[in-house]
Each structure stands twice: as structure tokens, then as C-alpha cells.
Design a protein around this nucleic acid. Structure first.
Lengths: 150, 150
DNA sequence: CTGAAGCTTCGAGTGCACTCTAAGTCAAGC
DNA sequence: GCTTGACTTAGAGTGCACTCGAAGCTTCAG
């Protein structure tokens, strides 16, 4: 029963009031119920839908595609529509799985590079102050590290 | 020693020749060595850098930030520059780790939803053809599934 | 020798997703 | 009763990262 004003909805969602109206305009959000004075009251149903929209958006789905999904959703329990939504989401999940794998790969390369730069920095620092640690200078460390990994 | 023409580099990188020149123009790629006739020859060093740039780009780093990194890279082994690059990458890694976690969360919600829609679809199908499988009709399956999870 | 590819400069155009402005009206809370 | 917030339509502006095109020249491969 907790309905929200546009301001509250904006705050809760992280979207601006502008954007919320914009989403409603283009049909991404169904027409929101109004108070007697014509102000929007976002129902919990609206809130859940917006939360899900944010997940689609956060995972890079275009407004076009979200619109297609939102349109199908209006058909409710119609078999065709349910199947199409299932297919859309399935496809999206596959896309995300690929992106996830790519991200993990990129992440591991970047972590290696961070390690490389960290080591290079301490080597350079040691060179700048050769006897500050009391450790013997090891020229091999520097010479074997001159080239960045990528 | 394998140098590439702009066309080959474009093909290898997935960038257009236009974009490769554009990247060079704005300083994302150092001036590429030229043949006697003035045509670009991408060295292996260039190729490695471009490959890394693509990783930065693929992980959502803005051109501005890549530019900052590319600029630092020109300082070579200067301690300051090395430390700054290390910090930039470290920060980027942290960003990516957050994104990775968010993506995994979103992915699990979407997988659940796919399952929900799959089950709903088969329930609806069973309803449409009540005796096609010979299985007894279970009204609870339908009635407990009327509301989507989000 | 000819057609495809490369070079330059430079500016305009594209697509996406907002984001904001303006102008004017209406309504609720202190 | 006045400030604040909400409403409307309609259109312009923003930022990003390309992306393309034109003009006019040179050069390489078959």
C-alpha cells in the first residue's frame, strides 16, 4: 500500500523525476495512477517494475529492447507473450554470461598489470635510494622488468 | 617484426581505419611509424598497445581516462608516472570488481526470471491442452504462479 | 596501367539516453 | 497567502564515441 510521489520514487530509484516522466511518456512505464490532484502515485507494483527496469538498464539493455519487453508485459499471461519474454530474457542472460567471461578475463589482465606496476615502482624507488633498506642492490630485477606486459 | 597496414590493423583490432586515425589524432595512439610513401606501419609494439586499449575500452573506460593513461605512458619508467598508472589501474580494477559483483547479482535475478517464465509457459500450455500429456491437471501450479517475481 | 588503398584536413552527422528550459497552471502544507 | 512541488506540451541541448563524406592528392599491387 506504500505509494510514492514522483520525488520519492526518484529518490528511491536514483532516476530523476524528469527521467521517470520520460520513461512513462515513451511507454517504458505504464501510466501511473494519479491522486485526486493529478499527481503521480507510484504503487508497489510500479516500484517493482522500475526496480527490474533498472536491472535491465544496468546490464546494458537498450531502451528499445526494454520497450519491447514492457510492451509484451502488457499482454499478461498470454502464452505467446510469456514465451517471447522468456526468450528475450534467455538471450539477455546469454549475452551477460559472455560479458561476464570477458570481464573476468580483462580483470585478470589488469590485476597482473597492477602487480607489474607495483613491482616496477618499488624497483625504481629502490634504485633512487640504493641503500635506504640496507638490502643489496639487484640489477637483474630492474633489467628483467623493463618491458611492460602489454 | 610483423608490421601491419592500417587496413590490416583495422581488421585485426575490429576498429575501423577511420577510428584508428582518430585515436592517433587525439593522442590515444602514439604517432605510428610511416613507410617511405607515408603509409602507416603498425609495429608489434603498437599492436600490443592497441590490444590493451581495447581492454580498457571494453571495460568501459572513457576516452578521457584512456588519454590520461596514454599520456602517462609516454613518461616511460619515470617513478611518478609509473605510480600514477598503477593507481589508475588499481582504481579501475576496483570499479570492475564492483561491476562484476553487480552483474552476477543481476544475472542471478534474470536466471530466476527465465525459470519462472519457462514454468509459466508450460503451465499455460498445459492449460490450453488439458489432457495432451495425460497428466492430471494441477490448479495449484497455476494459482500460485500468477504474480511475476518482479 | 589502372583500380584499390592510402594520405590529408575539416567539418558535419549519427545514435543513444537523457537532461533541461520555458511557459503556464494547479494544489498542498506551513 | 505564499512557497514548494507537481502537472502539461514541446522543443532544444548535452556528452560521448564514433562515423562519414568530400576534396584532392599519392602510391602500391596485380
Amino acid at each position: 500500500m506504500t505509494t510514492l510521489t514522483i520525488r520519492q520514487m526518484a529518490h528511491a530509484s536514483g532516476l530523476s523525476a524528469h527521467t521517470l516522466r520520460y520513461y512513462e511518456d515513451i511507454g517504458l512505464i505504464d501510466p501511473v495512477r494519479r491522486s485526486a490532484s493529478g499527481h503521480r502515485c507510484y504503487s508497489e507494483h510500479d516500484q517493482r517494475w522500475i526496480a527490474f527496469l533498472l536491472r535491465l538498464r544496468a546490464t546494458g539493455m537498450s531502451i528499445q529492447d526494454m520497450l519491447a519487453y514492457a510492451t509484451l508485459r502488457r499482454d499478461g499471461q498470454q502464452l505467446d507473450s510469456v514465451v517471447r519474454r522468456q526468450q528475450m530474457l534467455q538471450q539477455h542472460v546469454l549475452t551477460l554470461e559472455n560479458r561476464l567471461a570477458a570481464l573476468q578475463d580483462n580483470l585478470s589482465v589488469m590485476r597482473d598489470k597492477v602487480v607489474f606496476y607495483t613491482e616496477l615502482a618499488s624497483t625504481l624507488q629502490a634504485d633512487a635510494q640504493p641503500d635506504s633498506t640496507g638490502a643489496a642492490h639487484d640489477p637483474i630485477t630492474l633489467s628483467t622488468r623493463l618491458e611492460p606486459p602489454a
